[in-house]
């Protein structure tokens, strides 16, 4: 599948990445799957729950809390997710995937990204280097969970 984003969607993800630097930002891609394409309609910026270590640890415990923080980890509050999904469903939209930033790190998925990924969703990663948004890539988990495959991103040119 290919992921189709409008120029303002690319811009919204980059801006969010720069705004939350040096922390990781995250958000949701909403839209419709049509044939072999996922067509994004809306980008929803969400809060990185790792800013609230106590609550985040309840939702999904970290293995090495001393090394892991909102600088290199993101977690979406399932309640935020549930609300955003419900709201999207009421408007005839579905969740196509999620985006997050890699501050001062290439836009390549980490092992941690892969271990926590779900099939089908697009995982968009934007590199933010010294506060400036850089390369943006999209990835889809393989069926057997062994790897992330790159996903083509298209601009709808609107």
């Amino acid at each position: 599948m290919a992921l189709k984003l409008a120029p303002e969607h690319f811009e919204a993800i980059r801006t969010h990445g720069a705004r939350d630097y040096p922390n990781e930002c995250c958000g949701m891609l909403l839209g419709r799957a049509e044939g072999a394409k996922k067509i994004a309609v809306e980008i929803v910026a969400l809060n990185n729950l790792r800013h609230d270590p106590k609550r985040a640890q309840e939702v999904l415990p970290l293995d090495e809390p001393g090394l892991e923080s909102e600088r290199n980890r993101f977690l979406i509050d399932p309640l935020d997710q549930l609300k955003a999904e419900k709201d999207a469903r009421a408007r005839g939209l579905g969740v196509l995937g999620y985006y997050h930033s890699h501050p001062d790190h290439p836009a390549r998925p980490s092992i941690y990204d892969r271990e926590h990924a779900w099939p089908w969703y697009s995982y968009v990663i934007v590199n933010v280097q010294a506060g400036k948004p850089g390369e943006m890539t999209s990835w889809v988990l393989s069926e057997d969970r062994s790897r992330f495959d790159p996903e083509e991103m298209e601009s709808s040119g609107r």
Partner: peptide
């Protein structure tokens, strides 16, 4: 509701 999580390799902050 699947938990959505991820992040950089740990050497990022080291």
């Amino acid at each position: 509701v699947p938990s959505i999580a991820g992040g950089c390799p740990l050497r990022c902050i080291c």
